[in-house]
Amino acid sequence: MSEQTRREMFCGIAAAMLSGTLLPAQQAEHIHHAVAEARANGKYAPKALTAHEYATLEHLSEIIIPGSAAAGAPAFIDFLCSVCDDMKDIFTGGIGWLDEQMGHRYQVAGFVDARPEQQTAMLDLIAYRKNASPELNPGIHFFDWARRMVVDGYYTSAAGFKEVGYMGNQGLSHFSVPQEPLQYALKRCPV
């Protein structure tokens, strides 16, 4: 879509909102996709993390939720790091810890430089609370944040909505429940 068309559409949305009229759901949908498309097409330039940190985050994101990097989860996390020092400390600190651990264990420059099986061996340690130990706790704490934020970033993207099957945010003239999900649940329900 051209920049001109997109601008016209946004003007349309603004006018519709100011006059208090409702936007046809189809048009709204179109605009949402346009925004997503614009975001996806431009390569995101990190605002808070270094190029190395951001590349590590992208890699980690893809392992945690396949498809999440393209859906913008790393960009979402970097953006929050750029507006919140506490968030930034969690991610720069966590990535630094991870790189140091990988260097120590596998004599590599950092997490992204290790072989895939070395990466998953490390993550399998820090992805579970049951492995808590003074040595691993900083990594477990970081991974909990990373997983939480990647999941948040992915499922609040257009791709995440599609993956989980969210069908709402439509304009309907009446509400009704289809038979298929109802029968599915009733068959499985003890009462």
Binding site: G168, E180, A185
Partner: peptide, 12 residues
């Protein structure tokens, strides 16, 4: 559990 994996519908 009866609702696990239920076919999706617009429940808004």
């Amino acid at each position: 559990p009866a609702l696990d994996g239920m076919p999706r519908y617009n429940s808004d």
